[in-house]
Design a protein around this nucleic acid. Structure first.
Lengths: 194, 194
DNA sequence: ACCTGAACACCGTTCAAGT
DNA sequence: ACCTGAACACCGTTCAAGT
């Protein structure tokens, strides 16, 4: 009956995995070090053995989210969709990556994949164009994901729109194709989450 | 010598103005209700007479920032620059507007101004196009503003780039002109702040 | 109409000490 | 190598009570 001392020992990986799962449950605003620690049956101070501070933990989560971006060579639109869908994999994923990414923008894997696809189709201004597409995808995905979450909590003004998501998909495809300077491929519905 | 009871009385406007000035000083992350109250020589609980909660106060600040967007009819590029410069007027302005704006995206003044400019130049898909431009501007401005702030605190990896800001200006112009479907006007340097 | 005072349930982070 | 316990300096918010 006595509360046995917890023998669970963790490493950087198990902490990050648990934090990522918690992010998906509670969202970025409620992802506190104390909640993460509670999920691991550990005192909050234990986390500081594995990560120097919260910002470093969040950066690790952002890295794990962007690491799932496919890197096989395809066209620009498919690459952009892959980035967007990776951001959609976890709740508030876009916002997390956006707010963590400023420090390493040029060297990101996402931009490299976009640049490759642009070069393959013979586009001009590959560096600037890939940056612009990435900025658009991050802004768009952040707004869409916020709206999805607000929607699911009934906390937004009435809309007479038939299907908001379909409209946002059109905006995404139009944006990427315009920025890529190429004629659009047929759209594919994303697997999005609030 | 006795700490006299403060006769200062405030209203919604004075609270918002003081909070906006504080935002510019300390940034969004350090903009707490308690700090805002201290700036007004008032107890934190006093703020809840004027605003129901922090989110409502932040929404008011976002409204004030976007209210300075010029609405005189011009071309799309000039309109987009006007939006970006309004976001740059206060520290973390882009991030604040981005994180506050999801609830009212279609009805925003910014998108209306972009749609007007697009119609004036005879563009197709005006609704989708104006949304895409707005998403791009918000994503781009948020990333640029974060990078500016990180730069000024020396907290980012070494870069051999000659001038990062010039590159980002090129990205902005390329993005807006591509999304507008129009040939670029000569670029104008922005008045940006960290 | 607008504010104080006190309280409640939280935060991130540090650091000595334990095993 | 990894964790506890205790502390420090903070948060947003509520609510009775004051003027």
């Amino acid at each position: 009956m006595s509360p046995e001392p917890n023998p669970a020992r963790h490493d950087r990986d198990s902490v990050a995995r648990s934090a990522l799962a918690l992010l998906d449950e509670v969202g970025l605003a409620d992802l506190s070090m104390r909640r993460i620690a509670a999920g691991l049956d550990v005192q909050p101070s234990a986390l500081y053995w594995h990560f120097a501070n919260k910002q470093e933990l969040l950066a690790e989560l952002a890295d794990r989210i962007t690491a799932t971006i496919p890197s096989e060579p395809t066209d620009v639109v498919a690459t952009a969709r892959g980035i967007r869908d990776a951001l959609f994999t976890y709740r508030d994923g876009a916002e997390l990556v956006l707010s963590t990414y400023a420090l390493q923008l040029g060297s990101s894997q996402a931009q490299t994949a976009l640049a490759d696809a642009l070069r393959a189709q013979g586009a001009a201004d590959v560096e600037d164009r890939s940056a612009a597409i990435l900025h658009f995808v991050l802004g768009h995905a952040t707004l869409v994901q916020q709206r999805m979450h607000a929607d699911s909590h009934g906390a937004l003004p009435e809309t007479d729109d038939v299907d908001v998501t379909a409209g946002l998909d059109r905006v995404f495809d139009l944006g990427v194709t315009a920025l890529a300077g190429v004629i659009s491929a047929p759209p594919t519905p994303p697997r999005a989450r609030a």
